[in-house]
Design a protein around this nucleic acid. Structure first.
Length: 223
DNA sequence: GCTGCGATTGTCT
DNA sequence: GACAATCGCAGCA
């Protein structure tokens, strides 16, 4: 069987809208990262929308532009990669015109090409795990794709670029479910998390768990 | 300059 | 279910 014809990336206009509107349209699309070691492609099954400055308290850009979040203020169709918890990277896709901060966090997906490469990147933790968990969770997805801060700001609409978002097969709207966002401390109630209903690669929902400071006694909860 | 904490995950109980 | 790991960023003095 001959290989399928190469797909062109999604046009920049696709990303030129509010994150909450672009986000559900990304379900079923494919993000591909090509490196000298080979290509890894992930079919997106779960995303979260983050709106811009002053609007969304959970967004990195809520308090305005900083060196870290500068990419989200840039033109649409670019990657915003950030580093968190001292060890994890997460990938966003920038929406809305330059000067307006807005982004979609890619939370989970299914590795559809380059499974061995993705598994190798995920390391020992993934050794005994099924393929469906290779990109289940935002940090795992970024790791499976081999992304870090060096990829911050890449144009995902560039047909010749290493990181591209391909059309894939958009999920039918009746299979895309909206719900509250995961693992954030503020504005988690906004229904800006979208996932493919019933898909095994969607990450489990977790509420934000405030961390205890060293020396702080455990809150004596009589539940 | 100092301090607190995070759009998380893996491991242990 | 609970918690440690680990470091850059943001807020404040």
């Amino acid at each position: 069987m001959p290989p399928p014809p190469p797909q062109s990336p999604l046009p920049r206009a696709f990303f030129d809208g509010r994150a909450e509107h672009v986000a559900p349209l990304l379900i079923g699309r494919v993000i591909e990262h090509r490196t000298p070691q080979g290509a890894v492609a992930v079919r997106i099954t779960e995303v979260e929308a983050y709106e811009g400055q002053g609007e969304d308290p959970a967004a990195h850009s809520y308090r305005g532009r900083t060196p870290r979040n500068a990419a989200t203020f840039g033109p649409p169709g670019h990657a915003y990669v950030y580093f968190t918890y001292g060890m994890h990277h997460c990938l966003n896709l920038v929406c809305r015109p330059e000067g307006t901060a807005s982004a979609v966090l890619l939370r989970a997906g299914e590795v559809v090409a380059g499974v061995e490469q993705a598994r190798a990147r995920r390391g020992a933790a993934a050794a005994a795990r099924p393929d469906r968990e290779l990109a289940r969770g935002p940090a795992r997805l970024a790791q499976a794709l081999g992304l870090d801060l060096r990829h911050n700001g890449l144009d995902v609409c560039d047909p010749d670029g290493p990181l591209r978002v391909l059309p894939g097969e958009p999920a039918p709207s009746d299979r895309v479910v909206a719900g509250p966002r995961t693992g954030i401390s503020t504005a988690a109630e906004l229904p800006w998390r979208f996932h493919l209903s019933g898909d095994a690669t969607v990450s489990p929902y977790r509420r934000h768990t405030p961390r205890r400071r060293a020396g702080t006694p455990r809150p004596g909860g009589t539940s």
